[in-house]
Amino acid sequence: MSAAILSLAEAIERYVADGASVALEGFTHLIPFAAGHEIIRQRKRELHLIRMTPDLVYDQMIGMGCARKLTFSWGGNPGVGSLHRLRDAVEHGWPRPLELDEHSHAGMAAAFCAGAAQLPFGMLRGYIGTDLPAHNPNIRRVECPFTGEMLAAVPAINPDVTILHAQRADRAGNVAIDGIVGAAREAALAAKTLVVTVEELVDALPPAMNGIVLPHWVVGAVVPCRGGAYPSYAHGHYARDNAFYQRWDAIARERGSFLAWMEEHVLGTRDHHAFLARLQQEAA
């Protein structure tokens, strides 16, 4: 079975249902911004968003009212400060209340690993001396049957859909990723359906060696989408736009400026190409 090759609009329409649990992964690198924007354009609602670092992409989706719940482990604008839309949702319930399922990075990595292995829970030597378990019933203790040691346990994460961005795929749907990979492989294999947007579709992938390859039979759909990680980055293709991450702080700080920006740049553009063209026009 080969993966379907779809347009982004088709893939989101087909695989992201209202109410679904959705993981857009990629740790700082290869964040699938184009897919997040398309979910906003299609006005998906009641989503359970899952991501270690919500980043700007979930700040935008939360602020546009797509999310009912967030599973995460660090919710800031890296090196800049707060995610103002995430904060507004948690502090003031705007535009709607957001349920939190909050972890540490180590806990969430263990939950993704368990999900990929189709085990019921992940475990780690962690969450000791922290208040997180008191506020999250998904963090429990389990006894090692061999040594009696008490370990932390977290339920496996198995998203309805995981969406990644990758450098390339071949026409059968094999996907290759290099550079910083975060928990992308685990999130991909944990998903019921995997959708991958890619910088380029090629006839044959380069030899992978120790790079990550997601084989075609675990990939539901491949979506050609140049620039699909911008303002995050795709190693070997374009750099992270750190200046944009810094500018986002002022854009997202107030509801009005946020909505105006989203209206003009995301809802007001047909697709990711038009979004990038709008930004380039402004930069010129």
Binding site: H29, L124, I212
Partner: peptide, 25 residues
């Protein structure tokens, strides 16, 4: 200095890059 914890600069100048679950476990 990287702005984020995962800037490309960090990967390009690293001895190796491993998946995040490996770093933590």
């Amino acid at each position: 200095l990287p702005l984020s914890i995962g800037d490309g600069e960090l990967a390009e100048t690293a001895a190796c890059v491993v998946p995040l679950p490996e770093v933590f476990s």
